[in-house]
Design a binder for these strands. Structure first.
Lengths: 216, 216
DNA sequence: TTACTCATGTAAGTAGTTACATGATTCC
DNA sequence: GGAATCATGTAACTACTTACATGAGTAA
């Protein structure tokens, strides 16, 4: 149930529409939680029903309206309780590593393709997280400025530092992924050199037990 | 839909019951995908209905029976297609980092608690992954031995190496998490030193917009 | 006989995804 | 006038979790 707390924490910075919240989640460099808009709108209605947020119907142009959501006292209590409470660690569930475990079912080129995409993706991510951490350190994001504007000065350092720590951590994580993928690419090269010319065929195609011959 | 492929890949090593598959997923050091047994039994029935696995009713003691699942040709084709296909990268969704972003809602001690638990967890995990990678490298796990026993010798090096690469990667990831948590703990110490004596009160408790005074 | 592991499920609920749908506003 | 963006939803589905339920086998 992290979504509700992600929403409450964003709204604690200031009133927002569901649409704006969704945009925050979509900005890949901007947020550590992702959700699609149908889930956001649904959850906002639920939070409203539970009294953790309130909606102000606001005008939008001439005829249209939008719903500006605002955290309530109860919402703030929920945030306080959430931060105080300790959660047990998540179990491993990573589609990339799962597939990487069985790369022998494909050819060396298939393996290289996966590893290169992983490497390139995390190079981009590392740069994005790093840039966002820099923005936070310069206190140069709308959300952070809104947050600091209503917080006591003595808390500013901590508010900024915790966020910078998270995004530097994400950037470091992504750099780790890049190193891992690069090591993988070297491994594939070594394996292919050992194997000799094998073309683009699977190294060890999966076989059902009936068809199996004892190891050759 | 990684679960079905995780199951197929495990079964490709040799026939197993749902119970044994669930145990593989539960062994924290043993597997990169986690699932609870009801999901596993359900998915196995589905795979059976789709013809990707077949079940052999096997005796268990005097009166009881168990269902041994076996991959079919179609199941192997599905594995082959899965490894060949490239998946777009997952969006960020990490409850630990989400909470770490808002540690200022709690006291310094609350922050320390979260970071210490994270550090300790990942120390244990790193050791576990590392030990498993060592076992794989020595070709000293039941599953791997079963796998090698029905694979052509020229593929053995790759089969082992890809798995070792994954578990070394996991271990390296966890060491990264330990470093991140340690840096976080140093950060909390610095912040608390700067703040002076504040006891165990929240650094910046969340407040609804109505009650806000312009920054003090 | 008691406790533990082996073994397999159902049922209800929550969380997240994908497709479909609509309409106003703003900028070129 | 057309395209992009703002804005909000419903409905159907898939994935995952939690609680409940049962019973045989095995070793102390």
């Amino acid at each position: 149930m992290s979504l509700r707390h992600a929403l409450l924490a964003l709204l604690e910075a200031g009133p927002m529409t569901g649409y704006e919240l969704a945009k925050q989640f979509d900005a890949s460099a901007g947020y550590v939680w992702h959700a699609h808009h149908p889930q956001i709108y649904t959850e906002l209605r639920r939070l409203e029903a539970e009294g953790l947020v309130e909606a102000e119907e606001a005008p939008r142009g001439a005829a249209a309206t939008k719903r500006l959501y605002v955290v309530t006292d109860a919402g703030c209590d929920a945030l306080l309780a959430w931060v105080a409470e300790s959660d047990e660690p998540a179990r491993e569930r990573d589609p990339v590593l799962l597939k990487a475990t069985y790369l022998e079912y494909g050819s060396f080129d298939v393996a290289r393709g996966h590893l290169r995409r992983h490497r390139d993706h995390h190079r981009r991510m590392a740069a994005g997280w790093e840039a966002h951490a820099d923005d936070l350190e310069r206190r140069d994001t709308t959300l952070l400025r809104r947050r600091l504007a209503h917080s006591p000065r003595h808390a500013h350092e901590a508010i900024v530092a915790y966020k910078v720590h998270v995004y530097r951590g994400l950037s470091e994580r992504s750099r780790g992924e890049v190193r891992w993928a690069e090591q993988g690419l070297e491994l594939v090269d070594r394996l292919e050199a050992d194997a000799g010319p094998v073309g683009d065929s699977p190294v060890n195609p999966p076989t059902p037990p009936e068809r199996r011959s004892p190891a050759s």
